[in-house]
């Protein structure tokens, strides 16, 4: 079932005049998966999401759900949180959610129940009759997420859902996304908060200049990057040249040095070279953070 219920983004391209926004971008988001979409500003994350929602028409490529190209009717079952938040400022919160639920095809009573349920979940039960504009920005953002969830979507597409949230709200939002994914809903979201993405996502896609430059689990991405080792060799001279091909010195901190190894380079050769200078007090594998992976991948892609 898991592979059947996938959102397939297949080879989409989009140009704005001379500007290439998306270039043959392909990625699958599987059911039950939290997929994080990272990339610099203007890399194409928002454009991709807008194409999925049908707000933009791609120049080439197709988006499929359950193996068939997305129709307008199928798109109505996608929960969407656009980059630029948008709800009616002067409409009551609960009424607004009910309205959106009904627009997505719910019956009135059902929409009401769902709207009140989500407001309760986000701790906004006492604000249900307040106009949206009377809420704090953080609370407006919760309502925005509720708007994407209220009709029980088959797919969730969220553009920067964590931007501007306090740590407690981030936890609530992360919990809800994880819960939806566990319920079998493919969840795709973009974020600049790489630590959060690293902690939360099953898979991560790194997009740059409209292309998917890396995609996989955080561990897979780390494996694709260069390995690093800290070495503490007090006897080594301060101008010590390691002299090994594929090994670069990144940083020196007293007698501690950080080296980066090209793929395939044997770290034992590095250790032996270090031992040749005298005692080695530390030889440590450094797990690159997603941020480091991101920078190295984006750097390779040619910034």
């Amino acid at each position: 079932m898991a592979t059947d219920r996938a959102l397939e983004i297949d080879g989409i391209s989009k140009r704005y005049g001379d500007v290439v926004a998306l270039q043959d971008l392909t990625v699958d988001i599987r059911a039950g998966e939290l997929f994080g979409f990272v990339g610099r500003n203007g890399a194409g994350k928002t454009t991709t999401m807008r194409v999925v929602l049908g707000v933009l028409t791609p120049d080439a490529g197709v988006v499929r759900w359950l193996g068939v190209p997305l129709t307008f009717e199928a798109r109505r079952h996608i929960g969407y949180m656009p980059e630029e938040r948008g709800l009616y400022p002067k409409m009551r919160v609960a009424e607004q959610l009910m309205y959106l639920g009904e627009l997505h095809g719910m019956a009135g009573a059902e929409a009401r129940e769902a709207a009140l349920g989500w407001l309760d979940r986000f701790g906004l039960a006492d604000r249900r009759d307040a106009d949206l504009q009377a809420l704090s920005l953080g609370n407006q953002q919760r309502v925005q997420l509720a708007a994407a969830l209220v009709f029980g979507p088959d797919v969730l597409v969220l553009d920067e859902p964590f931007a501007g949230l306090d740590p407690v709200a981030v936890d609530v939002m992360a919990g809800v996304l994880r819960e939806r994914a566990t319920a079998g809903v493919p969840v795709i979201f973009s974020s600049h908060e790489l630590e959060l993405v690293e902690r939360l996502c099953d898979r991560v896609g790194i997009i740059d200049h409209g292309r998917m430059v890396a995609c996989g689990t955080v561990d897979e991405l780390r494996a694709g990057g260069r390995e690093r080792r800290w070495i503490d060799s007090p006897a080594a001279p301060s101008d010590w040249e390691i002299g090994l091909p594929g090994v670069r010195l990144l940083r020196a901190d007293g007698s501690r040095r950080l080296f980066e190894l090209d793929p395939g380079v044997d770290d034992q050769a590095l250790l032996q070279a270090a031992l040749a200078t005298g005692p080695v007090r530390e030889f440590a594998l450094v797990e690159p953070s997603l941020g480091e992976v991101f920078r190295s991948v984006i750097g390779e892609a040619g910034a």
């Binding site: 807008r50 049908g54 109505r76 656009p82 630029e84 948008g86 709800l87």
Partner: peptide, 17 residues
Amino acid sequence: VEEKATRIMEILLATIQ
């Protein structure tokens, strides 16, 4: 214009012609 200015247009157009 309200629907464009408040950006709700993008949510609406994802569900209604």
